[in-house]
Amino acid sequence: MHPRQRLDFGSPFRRSPLKSTDGTRLIIWPVVNIEEWEIERPMPRQASPPPGGAAGAVPDMPNWTWHEYGMRVGFWRLFEAFEKRKIRPTISINAKVCDTCPEVPTAARDAGWEFMAHCYVQMPIHRVDDEAAMIRQSTERLSQFLGRNASGWLGPGRTQTFETLDHVAAAGIRWFGDWILDDQPVWVKTKHRSLVSIPYTVEINDITVMVSGQHESDALLKRAKDAFARLYAESEQSVRIMAFGVHPYVSGAAHRIRYFEEMLDFFGQHQGVSFWTGDQIYEWFLTQSCPPGGRF
C-alpha cells in the first residue's frame, strides 16, 4: 500500500486546532535510542573511517567499541540527566539488548521509562528475511521483559517496506514514529486497524547533527532552540509536538553531555511545555480525533 493510500493529506495550519485540558501547548517527546550492534555484521554507523581497503570489514572493532561505550558510560549520563529533572523519556530499544546488556533496560524499566519496540537488532528492515516474524519476535521479547506489551514502534533508521505497518498493527502496536511528515499526530490506515503516526524527528537528532554533520558539540542545542522558538509560537493556536532523538554513544559523550542537559533545562523553562511519552500523546490524541471509519 502506497503511503498516500494510508493517510489523508492535511496540515496543522489548516486542520481543526488541537487543544489540551492541562494548558500544554507544546509537547516535548524525548526519545533515547538503545541499540544492539552485532559484531558479526558490518556496523550500522561509523565514527572511525576504516583504513584503505577495509570498508565493510567484519569484525569492525573500532566502531563496535564506540557503540559499547554508549552502553557502559553514555547511557548512564543520559539516565542521570533525565532522573535529576524527573523526566520520563521513551526508549526505542532493540529487543536483543534485554539479553546482551540487561543492566541498561532494567534501569530504564525500574525508573518507569516507556519502551518502544525498535526491531530485534539494529539493521535495515529491508535486509530482514521474515519481516513479520522479526516484528513479533521484537514485541514478544519486550513483553516478556516488561511484563506488559509495548505500544509503540520505531524502525531502525525509520526504515519500512510497503508492508511494515500492516505487520506492526498485526503485532498489537498502536502507534509508530517512523514518519516525519507532520508536527501533529495523524491517523494511518493498515489492513487490520488504524495506527497513529506520532511525529518523530530526523534533524533534532544527534545522529544527523553530530555523526552525519560532524558539527560542534553544542550544535544540537542551538538547532533545538531554533526549532522550539517556531513551534512554541505556532502552538499558541494548536498544540504542536517537538521530538528529539539521542543515542548514548553520541549525546552521552563527555564533550556533549553538558549541552544535552542545557537543552532539557531550556525546554523546561517555558510555560505550557510538557514532556510526554508516546502513550501519553496517543491517549491525548484519541480525545481530539477519531480514526478513519471508527476502527482502532
Rank of each mutant, 00 (worst) to 15 (best):
L7W: 07
Q184P: 01
E68F: 08
P292G: 05
W37Q: 09
Y232N: 11
P12L: 12
D110V: 12
R14D: 10
D110L: 11
L181T: 08
W64R: 05
P42R: 06
M263G: 01
E40S: 12
W153M: 00
F228C: 06
P105F: 01
R174Y: 08
G52E: 09
S138Y: 03
F176D: 01
A227S: 14
V186M: 09
G294R: 05
P49H: 03
Q280G: 03
K19V: 09
R14G: 09
V168N: 00
K222Q: 12
V32C: 08
C119E: 15
N205E: 02
S212A: 15
V121T: 13
F79N: 05
Q288F: 09
A169H: 05
V246F: 02
T139C: 01
F82D: 03
L181Y: 07
Q184M: 07
E38L: 15
Q137G: 11
I241H: 05
T201I: 06
L18V: 04
T106M: 15
I91E: 02
S235F: 12
S48K: 07
S274Y: 13
A243D: 02
H255I: 00
I241P: 00
E140T: 08
I91M: 02
F285Y: 03
A57M: 15
R258F: 00
T100G: 12
P124A: 02
D8C: 10
Q144H: 15
H2G: 15
A54L: 11
D265Y: 13
G152E: 01
D60H: 03
Y120F: 13
L220A: 01
S92Q: 01
V188I: 09
W76N: 07
M43K: 10
L165R: 04
D183W: 08
E35P: 03
L231I: 13
Y69A: 09
A117D: 03
P89K: 06
Y232P: 11
A95V: 02
T164N: 00
F13W: 11
R109N: 13
E216L: 07
G52F: 05
Q46N: 07
L78D: 00
I39F: 10
P199W: 02
V32D: 07
W276C: 00
P42G: 04
D166S: 13
T90V: 12
R77V: 14
E261T: 12
V97M: 14
F162A: 11
P50C: 06
K96H: 12
I91R: 14
D265E: 11
R45M: 14
L195S: 00
S212L: 15
V211D: 10
